[in-house]
Amino acid sequence: MRYLSPHTINEAVAALADSDGDVKILAGGTDLLVQLRAGMKAPGLMLDVKRLPELRSINVEKNCFHIGAAVSGAEMGEHESLKGSWPGVVEAMELIGSTQIQGRATPGGNLCNASPAADSVPAMVAAGAICTVVGSEGSRDLAVEDVGISPGQTSLGRDEFVVDFRLPERPPHSGDAYLRFIPRTEMDIAVVGAGVNVVLGDDGVCVDARVSLGAVAPRVLLVPDAANELIGRKLNDEVLEKLDAACRAACRPIDDKRGTVEYRTQVSGVLARRAAVIAFERAGEK
């Protein structure tokens, strides 16, 4: 196995273009190194992207946050203004692993590992985050929900990788939240996850919303039907019940060692309701 650690995006793209496709991108390594040790993966080339400066910083440009793909969860958690604007995104990232893992795990790695149960991804999808993707053909934008397509599979070309995540401008009265269910209190993988992001008018009526679900389908789902139950309404029990039903209707889960179809479906609605309550509260406070 070869290991490369380029210092510029051009070098990295060239290395990918020159390779035979048997490559794994190494960011925090919290999934990849475990997969290597378990004998599940044995790539010919491991391309470490942690030395690429564009991937390693959090910036604000034109009132929008840009989060480098190889920024760690701990760095996101320590970024006060990011946390203030996007608490759901930051909290989702911070749910991953332990304190030690937080020093390594990255949003880019979490997305490109393409697990439907990845915690940061539903929050990014609900936020409406857009990825900058580079490859030998140049750079392109890709919505986060369009990156993971099935367990372990992304839509990225073999010479492409994610540079950063761009979060939209944050109007007043907006808030987001992500909740997941695990049988333990920490150090576990989501059985179900739900992200809700809302923008409210001055009167408390929801003017824009995005709702996402994790671990209930082969990929993280954006659920427009659920968002539509929120848009144009204030939050009340009836709206929450409709949100719950829309989420359950969108689920296409499987039975596996972490949960049953019935359980995942039922709990997806519960978590969406609870996340919506938090997101509305947060939006109301700003």
Binding site: P183, R184, T185, E186, M187, D188, I189, K257, R258
Partner: peptide
């Protein structure tokens, strides 16, 4: 990971 003995916070 999937054989869940309690962690301290549980």
């Amino acid at each position: 990971l999937d054989y869940r003995i309690p962690v301290a916070s549980d």
